[in-house]
Amino acid sequence: MAQNLTAEQTPLVADLSEPATDSRLADVRVGVVTFPGTLDDRDAARAVEIAGGTAVPLWYADKELNGVDAVILPGGFSYGDYLRAGAIARFAPLMDRIVDAANAREGMPVLGICNGFQVLTEAHLLPGSMIKNEQLKFICRDQALRVENTDTAWTGRFEQGQTIVVPLKNQDGQYVADQRTLDELEAEHRVVFRYADGNPNGSRNDIAGITNAQGNVVGLMPHPEHAVEPGFGADLSGSGRVQMRQGTDGLDVFVSALEHLLR
């Protein structure tokens, strides 16, 4: 009887009970931070689990990182967006720990998705900022991206120049930075994802995602965590046509980080 099942016994769409290809991946603990207003934390945690890792929920007011090996700042919104997206979230107690861990010599992998990317720019872990989309509209669509840098902690499994498709959904998604910063990003190959098939929001240099100099911190506006599970992913894939919502191009972002941490 369905009502007698515990949460653990309830059948899931993706069968997480299947052993991951590499059982050591489960030893990798990835913290997923929830701010007041975060929407995609459970999707991000689920992406980590489907990739084979262990997701650890973190609360923005926590004082410690709970021994996690990597951190994801998920998308949605965050409290204080009324000032600027991510502007107040970046002063959360946990952000100091994340900034320290990201800047440490061993450079903890940190991924910021959408609002999480905005928090990373406000926290000065990544340069530039996001302003309202050029056309002032909320954009929600499957978006093709070109992977431009496979040397980061989050993109090792991709091929250089590979096209992937993941959902894009935001209103403040236009990446801006001054020309000097853009030149520096380009010269140092720190553009990680670039919009392919047209620029959806006016972002400078078609930039969808960037990394820091060390390659451990990556931020992007589109949502790889929404394209990890057949039946719930994008309608498209970079590798050709897929059945409706079967696009899982985002999964390798999470597998990349787990494998990076095992090396």
Binding site: K132, Q135, Q174, V176, D178
Partner: peptide
Amino acid sequence: MPKPEILDPQGKA
């Protein structure tokens, strides 16, 4: 104010 070199989509609208 938004920097002069930054487009201001709100102002434009």
